[in-house]
Amino acid sequence: MILPVFKLGTLALKTLCKPIGNRIKKEAGLHPRFRQSIINIAQANHRLTTNLQRRIYGRATDVAIRPLDEEKAVQASADLVGEFFVFTVAGVALVFEVQRSSRSEARKEEARKQELELLRQKDEELAREVEQLRRRMSEVEQLAKERGLSGVFKSRVPKETDNIPKDALPS
């Protein structure tokens, strides 16, 4: 019962984080201090990607790189921050799901271990019973050897009164 509700909640969280990410993108460009921080991040990212592209294509890397204009930098960083938020939420949900799944597997493994232990105990009990039956069989075989075939079918031990004639016994 809890699993479908949990999965539904995770899906709702993922669905809600997209508009929140968009809101973060919008607000990122409006807040003055945050705006300057994201512009700096965007400029550093622009320099890094430009240098990497130049190295990949075999061009000179010691050339000065023109900075992005402010609006493009804000837009690029705001997109980066919004996507980072969405991926962070999805990543946290994924980690939580994996941990939940591993706990579930651990419980199943513990149940399997307990079942194996019960089967082992039953096996030992059956082995003891078989050993008891073997001992009894050997006793019966020993009695059969001592008394002969008729002694096996009359497995009772003779009493002292068995040797006395029946008419001599008191009624």
Rank of each mutant, 00 (worst) to 15 (best):
A76G: 09
A64K: 09
I41E: 09
I38D: 04
N51W: 08
T49P: 06
A44W: 12
R147H: 05
Q132M: 07
A60S: 14
I41P: 00
R103S: 07
I41V: 03
K154W: 03
I56M: 10
N40A: 15
L52A: 08
E70M: 00
L126S: 06
A42T: 02
A73W: 00
E109L: 10
F96I: 09
P67A: 04
D79M: 11
H31I: 08
R55G: 07
K154C: 04
E83Y: 10
G148T: 03
V81W: 13
G82C: 08
Q142F: 07
T49W: 03
Q75P: 01
N40Y: 05
L133M: 15
R135F: 07
T10L: 14
V86R: 15
E129V: 04
E139P: 01
R120G: 02
A90D: 12
I24P: 03
L143Q: 13
E115D: 06
A64L: 08
E105R: 05
H31Y: 06
V130F: 13
E124H: 10
L68P: 06
F87K: 14
K14E: 04
R136Y: 03
P19F: 13
F84G: 15
G29T: 05
D62Q: 14
N22Y: 09
R59K: 15
A90S: 07
V74E: 01
E117C: 10
T15G: 14
A64R: 12
A28V: 06
P19V: 05
A127N: 14
Q99D: 02
A44F: 11
E97K: 05
F96M: 14
E129H: 06
R120Q: 14
K108Q: 11
P19E: 02
Q75M: 02
Y57R: 10
Q99F: 08
H31R: 01
V89I: 15
T10M: 13
D69N: 05
T15N: 07
L80Q: 13
E110S: 13
V63N: 04
K25Y: 05
R120W: 06
G151N: 03
D79S: 13
L16W: 12
E70L: 01
V92F: 07
D62G: 15
E146N: 05
F87C: 11
E109W: 06
S37F: 00
T10V: 14
E124G: 03
E27P: 01
E110N: 07
D123R: 12
A42G: 03
V92N: 09
E117W: 10
A111T: 09
Q99H: 02
N40S: 09
L118Q: 09
A73N: 00
V81D: 02
T61Y: 11
H46P: 08
V98K: 02
R66C: 00
R55P: 03
L94N: 11
A144C: 05
E27M: 08
G58E: 13
L149D: 02
